[in-house]
Structure formats: C-alpha cells, structure tokens
Design a protein around this nucleic acid. Structure first.
Lengths: 338, 338
DNA sequence: GGGCCGACTGAAAACGTTTGCGTAAATAAA
DNA sequence: TTTATTTACGCAAACGTTTTCAGTCGGCCC
C-alpha cells in the first residue's frame, strides 16, 4: 500500500509535485482542467496533507496553545469551548496544557512551547506565578500571547478580563442593600490581580456607604479546601456578627455553604452569601446562590479572536487591544431579604 | 539574531549537525566531553528542537487527539484532566476537538486527523453518530483509537467504560429499597450503547423485584432542555403515581428538579430522584442529589494509558484490552426515606 | 608492520511540503 | 515575421531533524 502524498499523486497524474501542490492550494498558475484532475484523485484517495511537512516548510503550525490552571472548572471549560469554536472556524487546532497552579510546571510548558509547536498562546497564569521571565522570553521569541482572566500585568500584550473592580463593588453593594451590617470578604491569597481588584471594589463599596472596612473581616483562603472550611468556621464563630459573605471565588462560597449548614446558620436569614461563580447548578443549590458570573465563553472567544487576528496579520499584539467584559449579577435566594 | 537550531549550534561548537543531534539525544556514540559542551551551549541558548522537523523525520508527533462532544461538562472536563496527566507524564501533547454532538463535524475532524497530526486518538462518539465508516478508515490508516464512555461497538478496539448495566440495576434497586412503587426512567433517545445498558439494568431490576416494567414510564428525552422540561412535566402530571425517577443523564435529573419545584412536588417526600451525574455541587443541591458518579478522571487516565502503550509499542489495540470501571452510588437526601 | 577493533565524528540522504525561478508553448502586440 | 506577454508547468532548494553509512585515528594483537 503506497502512501498517499504529493509524490504519489503526481506520479499517478503524470504531473510534477509542484503542480499538484499548487493545484490543491488553488493557485492561479495552474489550469482549471488540471486542478479538476488533481482534486478528483485527491478526494478519491482521501489525500490529507502532512501537517508537519507543511508546518516545517511554512513555519506555521495552525495551532494555538491554551495554558490554564485546570480544566475541571466550569469557567475554564467554557472558555475552552469559546476558544475551540473560534479556532476551528479559522482552521486552527487547540493544544491544551494544565499547570495545576504549579509555577514550575508553567515554566516547563512555556519553555517547551518555544519549539515552534504553536503559533500563539492563550494563557491564564498559575496563581503561584510571581516571576514572569519565562513569559517575557516568549515575546522575545516572537510568539504572540493573549492573557485571559488571570492576567500578568508585567507583560505588555492584550488581556481579556472582566470588570472585577466594579463587580466587587457591586457585590458588596448588593449585600449592603440586602441589609447586611457586617460583610466578610473571602479571597484566595495570591498575587493574582483579579483578587486584588475585587478586594478593592469591596473596600471602596464599604467606604462609599459610610462603613469602615474591618481588616478582620477579610479572610485569606488557601489552596486546600479542607483548610478553608476550618478558617471560615473559625471566622464565623469568632465574629458572630457577620451577616454577609462575599466570596471572591466559587469554592470559597461552597465552603461557606458547608460551614453554615454545619453551624446551623440559616441562609439567607442569618447570613447572606454572594460569590463569583460559573456554577451551572447555582440556581439549584440550597438555597439558590446569588452569583457574579463571568462571561467565560465570550472571554474565550474574544481572547482567541485577538490572538488569531495577530497571527494572521503577523503583527504584534498591543496592550491597547485588551478587552474588558462585564460580569453579570444573578440575584437568587442566598441574598434575599426576609 | 540567528535562529538557534542544530545548525547554528554545530557551527559555534565546530561540530557537525549529526554529532550535535546525537549529543542531545544522549547517544552512546559521542564522547562525554563533547556531550557536555553541546549541552552547555544548548541550555545557554535555550535551544528547543523544532517539533515539526522531528515529527516529519520520525513520523511521530508525540501528540494525541481527544475528540469529545463537549468540554463544558464535568465528566468530560475530568476525563481531559486524567488524559492530560498521563500524556504529560509521557511527553505527549493533547489536541482537543469538540463535536458538539454533530455527526458531520465529527467526520470532518476525524478525516482531518488522518493527516498525521496525531499519533493516536481518544474518542467519545457524538450521540448522533450512526455510521462508523469514518472511524474505520482511521484504523485502516493505522491510527490507534481508544474509545471512552460513549463507545462505538462496531469498531474493534479497546474501550474504557463503566458498568452501566449494573449501575442502572443498582440505581433502580436503590429506589425500590427506598419505597418507590412507580419508578420512571428518563434517558436520551439516541443510539449510544450506554443509554441502552442503563435502561436494561432498570428493566431487569424491576423484573428482579417482581415489578412489571411500564413502557409509559420510560421517557425518551431530546437534545433541547426546554423541551425536556415540558416532557417531564407532562409525564408527572399524566402519571401522578410516579414516586421515583431514575435519570440516565445529569441534565434530565436537573430538569426533573425544576419541574418538581414548579409543580410543588416535594423531594424526597413525594418523589425520589437519582441520576447519573458528575456534578461537583450535587451535595449542595436542594435537596442534595443522590448520584451514580462515574470515575471520569480514571476513565481518562486508563484510556490514555492504553493508547500510549500501544503507540510506544507500535502494536495494534485489541478489544480485549478494554476496561470497565465501576461507578459509585452516592446516597443523598433526594432518595432518603422519610 | 599489517590487520583489526573500538571510539568517535562527519557527510549526506531522507521525511513531505512549499515556492522562487526557469522555460516551453501559446497568445498577443508590433 | 519578430518580439513581448501570458499561461502552465517542472526543477530544485529549502525548512530542521534523524539516521545510515562511511570514514578517521589511535591503539592493540599477532
């Protein structure tokens, strides 16, 4: 069984490899009749061009890399969905790499990708990443990057984010409007800018409503969820006056639910909860959780669009191409007034 | 800025390209001192081999393709997680393709992948797929495939599945034991074998307990969730005697929750619900949902392991290498006795 | 000293594609 | 008719790597 490649096609058609190649690429310098012959045989034999030969020659891989902390998370899953959609539409392939929020793994992945395997990169940085040399080296290698959600402020490129400050402000105001007097804020303590923005929104909303932020009410969570449950339990016991919780990330809201169930605190009667979340089942929780939901699918789409545009035009990506999308507040029973 | 490749390294070291290549691959036929020199310069210049040149030459891409219906679904997200884990460990890359349960898209993807872009394929077939010629053509092209979860019985290769028949049986028995007299079964009407297995388990469990299966209690859902809500509402109104629901897929369980809330049917007092689901938040639903949960992460891992083993050994994958993993029943309040 | 072996290195072909250049024939312009 | 121009195609180099084959050089044995 002879391989089906340009050479074999050319032989069977009594043409040169060059002509066959050009015919398949619909070049203007091959006659219509020849094109027809070539295409007929190619489809008959189910010819598929060798992607690696093509990539090697053209120095273009038609592939983008997606580097994210995890995939088993509805936000990232939706983002991938959007990315794949845009990529497929433009004939691009999508490579997935998971960092598991591990800095060294992120560095290894990024370093590896400089081998030319991808034409560009979409990235949501690991929460532990503090040094960005590996990312800058990508830029030096002329590999375009677009950050989404968890961006890296130190690197000059486009970023697709959500209005985290405003959302933090809005979430806090929502709790205030619902009658909460002592609002705690739970966040993951890392160097991610999004957490900082949300926190600042929280603080400013309190000030805007004449409240004095209480540092004791800002809880810095950790990676381990078991530990977070302990921290939250401790906080709620130490400060029984807390009647509102604004969770910066989904799992902190979930952990708070667990603690409240355990301590017999009624939601929303005793304590109201709002959290950032892309949880599909938020409306089915007990009670339904009020969420700030990021447009994850659109984030993925927009980020991919910016990247592909830059790749196709061979132009560098400018920070000015950044996009900020708006999250949406879905009011549910966990913050209902009673 | 000269490119950093084997040629430039060789020139700077006054060596031949061949020797540099061998040194980097740790060949035994290059002296230790030379190896050291080569490696030193390579790391200093951050040399990364061109993946495409290597793939072209060796006819090996170190990449596997994952073709699944969707990613915004905890089951598939977890499976990808397992796949990526195994792949990364063996130095493989992971390409993601989403079919969105669209047959034509699946065919196009599969056809495209014959171009040699991947060394093997992991696949969960689209629910609409009835003709498997495109998949068989992959085998003819000597591209190894492993199916997981949504398998394709007509193709002779390894499959990683769960004990769907037993789980269907067990779920039904669970409802019977909880005191349900009239148990409905909701499934998605398509040609997927898993649905058939679960249905058979349901029917056999009824018979095993002296019940006569009632065809009217088997509801064939559709793709559109809105429509499913209507169908379920209609069923529950037409047959108010239904006091147990076994949902074959997660979203049918969720739709049932919605209908019950809407109709004021109390769960579990009036009606008990169990469903296949990988929902993280199942324990937080109102009420917590009893689930049959598939070991999605392990499914991904095992499937990837079988595939990579076959790739590395260049041996065909046999159906006898198939694996059946056990799902787990998590009892929660939605099926509690009162 | 001839032959042989082992250790090391280099030259060159090959993987399949794309593309600059050359060229023959056909057509148009002079 | 001669000279441009166009059309359609082929030749061959190139992309960066791997690998086969063929050396070279010293040392060793007989």
């Amino acid at each position: 069984m002879t391989p089906v490649n340009l050479k074999s096609l050319a032989e069977q058609l009594n043409l040169s490899i060059a002509t066959v190649s050009r015919a398949l690429r619909d070049s203007h310098e091959v006659s219509a009749t020849t094109k027809a012959r070539v295409r007929a045989l190619a489809t008959a034999l189910h010819y598929e061009p060798n992607a690696y030969a093509s990539s090697l020659r053209r120095n273009i891989s038609k592939t983008i890399g997606v580097v994210i902390p995890k995939v088993a998370n509805h936000f990232f899953a939706l983002a991938i969905n959007g990315i794949e959609e845009v990529a497929r539409h433009s004939g691009y392939h999508v490579l997935i790499y998971l960092t598991h929020d591990d800095y060294t793994r992120e560095v290894a992945i990024v370093q590896h990708l400089k081998g030319g395997r991808v034409d560009g990169l979409l990235m949501s940085v690991a929460s532990g990443t503090e040094d960005f040399a590996h990312i800058r080296s990508l830029q030096e290698a002329n590999l375009p990057i677009v950050f989404f959600d968890r961006v890296c402020a130190e690197v000059a490129t486009a970023k697709v984010t959500t209005n985290d400050y405003e959302s933090g402000f809005q979430a806090t105001e929502h709790l205030i409007a619902a009658g909460c007097r002592h609002i705690a804020h739970l966040l993951i303590s890392n160097n991610l800018s999004i957490g900082q923005f949300r926190l600042q929104g929280y603080l400013d909303a309190l000030l805007a409503h004449g409240r004095t932020p209480d540092p004791e009410l800002v809880l810095h969570g950790v990676m381990d969820n078991e530990q977070n449950v302990g921290l939250i339990r401790e906080l709620l016991l130490r400060r029984p006056d807390i009647d509102g919780v604004f969770a910066s990330v989904e799992r902190l809201a979930i952990s708070t639910y667990h603690v409240c169930h355990e301590l017999g605190r009624r939601i929303p009667e005793d304590i109201k909860i709002i959290g950032f979340s892309n949880l599909e089942a938020a409306a089915l929780l007990d009670p339904p959780l009020t969420t700030i939901t990021q447009p994850a699918y659109d984030i993925g789409r927009e980020a991919a669009k910016i990247l592909l545009r830059a790749i196709e035009k061979k132009k560098a990506i400018l920070p000015s191409q950044s996009i900020v999308l708006n999250s949406e507040l879905f009011q549910r029973r966990s913050t209902a007034q009673h």
